[in-house]
Simulated scan of single mutants.
Amino acid sequence: MYPIDSTTYRSKAFNRRVRFLVLHYTAANFQSSVNALARGDQVSAHYLIPSPTDPSYTRAGFDKTRIFSLVDENERAWHSGSSAWGVRTGLNDTAIGIELVNQASVSNGQFNFPDYHPEQIAALVQVCQDILQRYPDITPTHVLGHSDISIGRKSDPGAAFPWQQLHEAGIGAWYDDTVKAQYQAQFTRQMPTQAELLEKLRTYGYSVPAQPDARSVQSLLRAFQLHFRPANYRGVADAETAAILFALVQRYNA
């Protein structure tokens, strides 16, 4: 047997697999989520965070919130599917995925986004802070929702997800209120063109089609609004949406 020398010479020319943190809801109760993510062979995630008030969680024998590790972080979990951000596609290759049990639903095109339990968010903050400490390539703009990377296909983690709260805990991106107000005053008088909005979305990281049509533009704006302006996510361009977008690009892409 020939020895493997892993100490004499060590290369600096490498990087880490993990560059993104993608957050999801399960759109199902705890038991159904476990069946899909841990017992099925179609989808998976690295972590699952239950709601402590979910009856199926208590029936499973748990009485306190815990974080379930389903797939080792160095392995490729199947949570993002067809996805893109910036120049990267197929984000399962480079992402850690976290699923939160939340029974969001859609009926006749109308979405219902239930609130997340405070203990779920506290647990999420804990695990995200730990992940970000260990993976410095996950920048604020690389902490994303499934809806950000799968435009028109996904809506999770939904309009009830507290992105600003996470940002205040050092997780993910958010805009500066003063800069947003300055842009909003400007755009109330004169909106940017659609081409300018799409270029800013592309600069920030969203996957913008080479030849966008009305439907794809609406889907892009809806995804952006779900993350950064969840009070109104119809996918219609307005001064506030444009102001938030420009403020984000100024903060993170200047």
Rank of each mutant, 00 (worst) to 15 (best):
M1G: 11
Y2G: 06
P3L: 05
S6G: 00
T7W: 06
T7C: 10
N15V: 09
V18G: 03
R19M: 10
V22D: 07
H24R: 11
A28I: 00
N29Q: 11
Q31L: 15
S33V: 00
S33E: 00
N35D: 15
A36H: 12
A38Q: 13
R39F: 13
R39Q: 15
G40C: 09
G40K: 06
D41T: 14
Q42G: 11
S44D: 02
P50M: 15
P50R: 14
S51Y: 02
P52I: 15
P55W: 02
S56I: 11
Y57I: 15
T58E: 10
R59L: 14
F62S: 15
K64D: 10
I67K: 08
I67C: 10
L70Y: 01
E75P: 03
H79P: 01
G81H: 01
S83M: 03
S83T: 07
A84G: 09
A84S: 12
G86W: 01
R88K: 07
R88Y: 07
R88G: 02
T89P: 01
D93W: 12
I96L: 02
G97A: 08
G97E: 03
I98M: 01
I98G: 02
E99I: 08
N102A: 09
S107A: 13
G109T: 12
Q110G: 04
F113G: 07
P114L: 04
H117N: 14
P118R: 05
E119G: 08
E119K: 15
A122K: 12
A123E: 07
V127L: 13
V127A: 10
Q129Y: 07
L132K: 01
R134G: 02
P136H: 08
T139C: 00
T139H: 01
V143W: 00
L144P: 08
L144A: 11
G145M: 02
G145S: 05
H146L: 05
S147K: 03
S147I: 04
D148P: 01
I149M: 07
I149C: 08
G152M: 08
G152T: 14
S155Q: 08
A160G: 09
A160S: 15
A169C: 10
A169E: 09
A169P: 04
W174K: 02
W174T: 03
D176S: 10
D176A: 11
D177L: 08
A181P: 02
A181I: 05
Y183P: 12
Y183I: 09
R189N: 13
R189Q: 15
P192H: 01
T193S: 09
T193D: 00
Q194D: 02
A195K: 12
L198G: 14
L198Q: 13
E199R: 14
Y204C: 06
Y206W: 07
S207W: 03
Q211G: 06
D213S: 11
S216R: 13
Q218D: 06
L220R: 04
L220I: 07
L221I: 15
Q225E: 09
L226W: 03
H227D: 06
H227L: 03
F228I: 08
Y233G: 01
G235E: 02
V236E: 07
V236N: 03
A237R: 09
A237G: 09
D238S: 11
D238Y: 06
A243G: 08
F246M: 10
F246I: 06
V249P: 00
Q250H: 13
Q250A: 14
Y252L: 03
Y252G: 06
